[in-house]
Design a binder for these strands. Sequence first.
DNA 1: TCCTATATTGTACAAATGGTCAACAACCAC
DNA 2: GTGGTTGTTGACCATTTGTACAATATAGGA
Lengths: 199, 199
Amino acid sequence: MGWKRAPEDVRREQILQGAFEVASREGIGGLTIRAVAAQAQLSHALVVHYFERKERLVHALLDWLIETTSVLHVSDDIARFPRALDRLHALLEQEMARLGHQPRHTRLFFEFWALGARHEEIRSRIGAELERYRAAFRAIMQELLLAEPSTFPGATADGMAAVAVSWIQGCAVQAMIDPARFDTDEFLAAVRGMIGRLA
Amino acid sequence: MGWKRAPEDVRREQILQGAFEVASREGIGGLTIRAVAAQAQLSHALVVHYFERKERLVHALLDWLIETTSVLHVSDDIARFPRALDRLHALLEQEMARLGHQPRHTRLFFEFWALGARHEEIRSRIGAELERYRAAFRAIMQELLLAEPSTFPGATADGMAAVAVSWIQGCAVQAMIDPARFDTDEFLAAVRGMIGRLA
DNA sequence: TCCTATATTGTACAAATGGTCAACAACCAC
DNA sequence: GTGGTTGTTGACCATTTGTACAATATAGGA
């Protein structure tokens, strides 16, 4: 026949790419060993050979998704802002722009969030990502609270970090479900109004 | 045999109850006509008889879920507050408390949100619910902006309503995925700090 | 009491799916 | 070349699932 050999890691990547395509198109519920194999132009037995069980493939896809999503990279451009408030604004803006630039990643993440409600393995990985997310905001919020303690009475850095994460999530959900009636710019403007003026 | 007849609406309700139980336990992906029938102690053929196709059953379950979730009922206790800010605080508190009181409803809603990304029918219903949600907050936000225009510079009532919805959603997601590291009280305190002191 | 309408059920069937396995073909060491 | 190793495949199996359908039990009217 006309098939070729390939190094193990190349095959795994090829299969995961196929899994991402299928999951993006059909949803995780429609993620089938055979569908992935067809997408990657391989036999389904080979997919089983590399990932043993479908469950493993799903977990591997989540890991792949986390790795390939350019989430929360605090770039030098952002880190350069001397004031914490400016960094917060820039970070929010960057993350919300990313939601629009990687729509398939965002939607797939969303499905994994829902899956996490019932599968411990997935929940713990998503939970760790959420914590990473909060931690990035927490540092900024801490600085913000120290600089102007009276601005947000009663608030803690932890709480404000969680609120920042909820902005991202809420923006993602509403933009996905209701793009016609949801306006990201207005959303961002409202957030800005709440946390203070951009210098 | 020992089976009995029942009025049509009773049977439909019985089946939908069973569907809710199954979907809560196994997820929408595990929602099977046979599983629903077993839960409701009926033959699976009867479930088909009443809902014709599985798709219809899922849509009916979503409608049922929307109806039976005590979401966003602005009670007299809340409406009595003269100041918009107080009503906002009370409404947020009520909604976040509900998330904890109806955890199965919240989780199931979450799954439907994710499903909505791929199914037009579901997306439109969820979208309408989101709009209802925003509308309730929009009225309060409008009043808030009129009373103190300088408090939230650049923000619109629409944008702030969307942000309020994102608080509820973000709180639901994080509390579900990461209950150990997420503190609802701190979250609420941070939100309060951002929108102003409670009188 | 009988008879009709229909609510309810068990059976059946095709399609899809996860997983197993023996066979085969490409690559490598010798 | 040759033989062994192993990546790769098609065929196969058991199970589940959606859906169709004929048979049956029940309720209510004549």
